[in-house]
Simulated assay, not measured.
Amino acid sequence: MRFDKLATFVKVHEEEYNPAIGGMESNKEEDELYCSYRSLGIKEQNELFGKVDVNAASLVIKGQGKDYDYIILGENKHRVLAVQRFRNKTGYLIGEV
């Protein structure tokens, strides 16, 4: 398994008041991690989603990953559909937004 794709994992927190700017401000936590990327085939998409138009893929990172809201891979934004944690790695099932 090659961890050769650089992806930005983003967790969006609730908006908080910032007195310095005098308004609400959203806080995002971004982690850039190398991952192993694999697009899902037609058969796997049909089994998981019952349709093919999801454009789903699988990402695996080393270590214990967090719960993220979305992932930016290249220039495309993907939403996290499912997370599975193993002993030494974390798998994410993602779909294009």
Rank of each mutant, 00 (worst) to 15 (best):
L33E: 09
M24I: 03
L81N: 13
M1S: 10
G63H: 03
E29F: 11
R87D: 15
V60P: 00
C35T: 05
Q84F: 10
G95R: 00
E44T: 04
K28M: 14
S58F: 03
G22H: 04
K77M: 11
Y92N: 04
R85N: 14
I72W: 06
Y92V: 01
Q64R: 12
M1C: 06
E75R: 13
L81A: 12
D4Y: 03
I21F: 09
Y92P: 05
E16Y: 09
Y68R: 02
I71P: 00
V54L: 08
Y34L: 09
N18K: 05
D4V: 05
T90N: 11
V12C: 11
K28A: 13
E47C: 02
G65L: 05
V60C: 04
E96P: 00
V12W: 07
Y17P: 04
N76H: 09
G65M: 12
N27I: 15
E29A: 08
R38T: 01
K66L: 13
E32A: 13
Q45W: 00
V97L: 14
L81S: 09
G65D: 11
F3M: 10
Y92Q: 06
F49T: 00
F3K: 00
T8H: 11
V97Q: 10
R85I: 03
E47K: 09
N55Y: 10
K43D: 12
G23E: 02
G22S: 04
N18S: 09
F3T: 00
L48E: 03
N27G: 04
D31R: 11
K66W: 09
L93H: 02
V52Q: 01
Y34T: 04
G50H: 06
K51Y: 07
M1H: 08
E47V: 01
V54P: 00
E29G: 04
N46I: 05
E96Q: 11
A7G: 10
G95V: 01
A57R: 01
R87H: 14
E32D: 14
E47I: 05
Y37W: 09
A20D: 15
R79P: 00
N88E: 15
V97E: 14
Y70A: 02
G95K: 03
N88Y: 11
M24Y: 13
D53M: 01
L59F: 08
Y92S: 01
D31C: 12
K89P: 00
I21Y: 06
Y37C: 01
Y34S: 08
V52K: 02
G74S: 10
I94E: 02
I61R: 08
D67S: 14
K43C: 03
N76F: 09
M24Q: 15
D69I: 05
D31A: 13
M24A: 13
S36E: 13
L48C: 01
E32C: 11
Y37V: 06
T8N: 12
T90D: 14
L81Y: 10
D4C: 07
L40I: 04
